[in-house]
């Protein structure tokens, strides 16, 4: 199992963020929420590693302890 990578890893981060915002443009809040949910599932499947996914969930919850 590899560790969850929490260091910068996206080349052209600004381009990515602009593309993410563009994907949401013109959507209602409900449509945007649904898009985000689908995106999470697509990315989770790509990662595939259960340990990494659990660590990512913990990281996103911003819990007091650092994720393992």
């Amino acid at each position: 199992m590899s560790d969850l990578n929490l260091t910068p890893n996206i080349p052209g981060a600004d381009d990515f963020y602009a593309e993410l915002l563009a994907a949401h443009e013109g959507l209602t809040k409900a449509e945007s929420d649904a898009l985000n949910a689908r995106l999470v599932l697509v990315l989770a499947n790509h990662i595939g590693d259960r340990g990494v996914l659990s660590a990512a969930l913990t990281a996103a919850m911003l819990k007091e302890e650092e994720p393992a």
Partner: peptide
């Protein structure tokens, strides 16, 4: 609203995670 949610998520994460 979604643009703000994503922005705030980035800021919240930035406090803990370098990425």
């Amino acid at each position: 609203e979604m643009s703000r949610i994503l922005r705030d998520a980035v800021l919240d994460l930035s406090e803990r995670y370098e990425f």
